[in-house]
């Protein structure tokens, strides 16, 4: 089953199969030692640059800022959810620690 994954409205949100799934302005806890020196990056998602699905996982290339130390920029592709049988299931992005991938 093909799944349409895209970023729209100037990077404001992730669409999966024409439904809004993730919006900017969320706060994520990231394991991102290459992004900043904080033990855990307290990351404000300011904009999405691209999205992809590899296997079940949906990732969004995101720029933003660690609100603890102020480091800012593109953090890489952050996994935000999974597609199972054509349906998107978002991760608990407030509670989980997310690890960006290249």
């Amino acid at each position: 089953m093909s799944v349409a994954v895209r970023i729209l409205d100037d990077g404001a949100w992730l669409s999966v199969n024409d439904e809004r799934q993730v919006s900017v302005s969320e706060l994520w806890r990231l394991n991102a030692p290459e992004f900043c020196q904080c033990e855990q990056t307290d990351f404000l998602a300011e904009g999405f640059l691209s999205a992809r699905s590899s296997g079940r996982t949906v990732t969004v290339e995101t720029y933003g800022q660690c609100i603890a130390c102020g480091s800012s920029g593109t953090v890489g592709h952050v996994p935000v959810g999974e597609i199972i049988h054509g349906e998107f299931y978002g991760y608990d992005r407030e509670g989980d620690v997310l690890t960006p991938v290249a």
């Binding site: 729209l8 669409s15 199969n17 024409d18 439904e19």
Partner: peptide
């Protein structure tokens, strides 16, 4: 159509219509 919403909302902008947020 459910699978055409993104494209139509993108096109509607040309006629001054912006789908409001989530």
């Amino acid at each position: 159509p459910d699978d055409e919403r993104d494209e139509w909302f993108e096109r509607f902008k040309w006629w001054g219509l912006y789908h409001q947020r989530n």
